[in-house]
């Protein structure tokens, strides 16, 4: 799909990959798949395939990065060299460093950082295959990995994007739409608290279109949130106690 296609949305309002304007790509989530990590998650969001692993809370190294009053969250977003069409250098690029920061800041409000002073939590996000909207899928997976590590949180964070393609606001852009389309609005969201933790926009939208895109993205977030809860519960369905006795 390197050639620019003529039409991103056909006359019937169907997009290149066969979706309607307000339709998500299929999302598959799995929790606790890396035994060496304290918590882990895997997401397949359309053609995106992303692994997230969480470690901690543990002592911060190097020590000077620890904070006396709170826990420090560190995120590393990294794309595998084989994750995109043209080999990507494995060294962290400008974009990856920025996304690491953006993902960290979208997860931080969900955690009780002040409970565990002088400690650190590390989240490693590895993009195995990228097809547009990796930051959103990464946030969804990273939040699940943190929950799986047993780190107390206010709510799971879930993210989804909306954008503008062919003068139409659509949900969950994939790679070609993202590159050819005219705007992209990723939103990270905590559904139970009704709080947005990440809101970005690139491209141009009118205020009306922007509002429509945001509400559409939040709608997508709510759908993925259900899958997220489902994935977290599935891991523990088998060990649901009927009786708990405590000292």
């Amino acid at each position: 799909m390197n050639e620019k296609p003529e039409k991103l949305i056909n006359k019937k309002g169907i997009r290149l990959d066969g979706r309607k304007a307000d339709e998500l790509r299929p999302v598959k989530l799995e929790v606790g798949i890396l035994p060496n990590a304290d918590g882990s998650a895997y997401i397949e969001h359309g053609k995106n395939k992303i692994l997230a692993a969480a470690f901690g809370p543990r002592e911060m190294h190097p020590k000077h990065l620890s904070r006396p009053d709170r826990m420090v969250l560190r995120c590393r977003y990294h794309m595998a060299p084989f994750s995109v069409g043209e080999r990507k250098s494995p060294a962290p690029s400008r974009r990856e460093i920025e996304l690491s920061k953006v993902i960290r800041e979208s997860l931080e409000p969900s955690l009780f950082l002040e409970y565990y002073p002088r400690t650190g939590v590390d989240v490693f996000i590895e993009v195995l295959q990228a097809d547009g909207g990796t930051r959103c899928a990464s946030i969804t997976a990273a939040s699940l990995a943190l929950a799986d590590a047993g780190i107390p949180m206010r709510d799971l964070v879930v993210a989804c994007a909306a954008g503008k393609v062919e003068d139409k606001v659509v949900l969950d852009l994939f790679d070609t739409e993202d590159k050819v389309g005219s705007a992209d609005v990723p939103v990270a969201f905590m559904p139970n608290l009704n709080a947005v933790t990440l809101l970005q926009m690139d491209g141009q939208l009118t205020p009306d279109e922007f509002e429509k895109a945001v509400s559409m993205a939040i709608g997508g977030c709510r759908k993925i949130y259900e899958l997220q809860k489902e994935a977290l519960k599935t891991k523990y369905m088998l060990i649901e106690p009927e009786e708990e006795d405590e000292e």
Binding site: A147, R154, D155, L156, M190, N192, Y236, E240, E242
Partner: peptide, 10 residues
């Protein structure tokens, strides 16, 4: 009682 809950559940 004993319901499985996820973080953020009211």
């Amino acid at each position: 009682k004993k319901q499985l809950v996820t973080p953020g559940e009211m």
